[in-house]
Design a protein around this nucleic acid. Structure first.
Lengths: 222, 222
DNA sequence: GCAAAAGTGTTGAGATTACACCCATGC
DNA sequence: GCATGGGTGTAATCTCAACACTTTTGC
């Protein structure tokens, strides 16, 4: 690794796939590009990494610029480095994925983009760059991680019912799960804490739960 | 993502952790640096990505420059982007790991490095940059992948005995495995083909096996 | 004949699945 | 009182782990 300042090099960018649950569906945040060869196309939010800025910091910056939020679950996915993925220049992009609780979904306005929208991951439009590949990759990773980590806490508000939790699992995995077995496994995993309160609705009240620990852990769940 | 050519940007490099089995031990290829702030230190082979070169191509190039080999198992690991990981400049490094069959271990000479050496992964010296982190990460990934992919074929010659295969699993995982259960599982996975030949040695001859398919597949093994 | 690795099945425990009925509430 | 989601237990199956002896060869 011998930096030679007189030679041209690729640029480095980050792109962030931000997932959330909205209207009972798993959605991702898309931005509509105002400029460049993909003007008018949808893409995941992203941008160049500045000199002296760590790539994690760049991803956090993107997140907070676009959603106004910090302290969100954020994980590096994969790096895409095909020289032709951006027609303007060779841009190596480090993809991240983030999980947003459904409670907080206000979106910051941003001069760089025409619009920001939450779109169902099962019906994404054709995206700019290689972002459809990033989307597929992110969704695979999210599905895999549901089974052996507790990161689903990042998609949930502080309090939730077991029914709501199961609904999220089913939505993301695209399957249905047996209610009794699901409850047994999740309670056996010891990640949840029953609260002395219930959620009232049109039917029988449901016990509210909270995560005992709101930090990422590797634990077999399903 | 709006490239602005007048601004300085980080550079992009690849670093490759090349594993092989040697003398009954899992080893990684280290290079001794001739220049730079880590002169005299050991590191994994790596180098800057050229403009117009995909990062996968850069990793393949590193591999073939250092080992003279192509068509080796190669997988992207993770990207490290701390601005201070290289004291000279902000270099974002995409780490890869590669698996080399033990048969082919001749090493190409390389003007950039003082020496190339295979070193046991359980006793790596302090490495340049953040390469000890990369090493830990690569080893974790390799261990995890043994259980649910067939990539171990990349560490083995065309023909091998079940005993040799088990030895490799035990070596990498750092555990011992029950021989009967191990054989049952591997044969049940259907990845192996018994050859009509045996390996003769000082004791009872062992049936030789080959992998039915020498390409990466995700299949539960252990 | 003996040392050393190869080869082979069974059993018990634990985990996982499948499955049906009553409960509490709002309307 | 009825529609709706909440809450609960058991039996059958499958998977996984533990375990010991015989075989074949080189020396």
């Amino acid at each position: 690794m011998k930096p030679s300042p007189h030679q041209d090099h690729p640029w480095v960018a980050v792109d962030v796939v931000i997932f959330t649950i909205d209207e009972g569906v798993l959605k991702a945040l898309l931005v509509n590009l105002k400029e460049g060869p993909f003007r008018g196309h949808w893409a995941f939010p992203g941008g160049l990494v500045s000199l002296g800025e760590s790539i994690d910091a760049a991803a956090i910056r993107e997140l907070s610029e676009k959603t106004g939020l910090r302290h969100i679950y954020l994980e590096q996915l994969c790096t895409f480095g095909d020289p032709h993925r951006d027609p303007r220049a060779h841009v190596v992009s480090v993809a991240y994925f983030a999980l947003l609780p459904r409670a907080d979904r206000r979106l910051a306005e941003h001069p760089k983009y025409a619009r920001l929208e939450w779109r169902a991951v099962t019906a994404l439009p054709p995206l700019a760059y290689d972002h459809n590949r990033i989307a597929a990759y992110a969704l695979d990773r999210l599905r895999a991680k549901l089974a052996y980590t507790n990161i689903v806490y990042s998609l949930l508000p502080d309090e939730f019912t077991l029914g709501e939790l199961q609904e999220i699992y089913e939505m993301i995995l695209g399957t249905t799960l047996d209610r009794r077995n699901f409850r047994k496994k999740l309670l056996a995993a010891g990640l949840l804490r029953a609260l002395p309160r219930v959620r009232r609705g049109p039917h029988r009240p449901a016990t509210l739960y909270a995560f005992a620990q709101r930090r990422p852990m590797n634990i077999p769940i399903l």
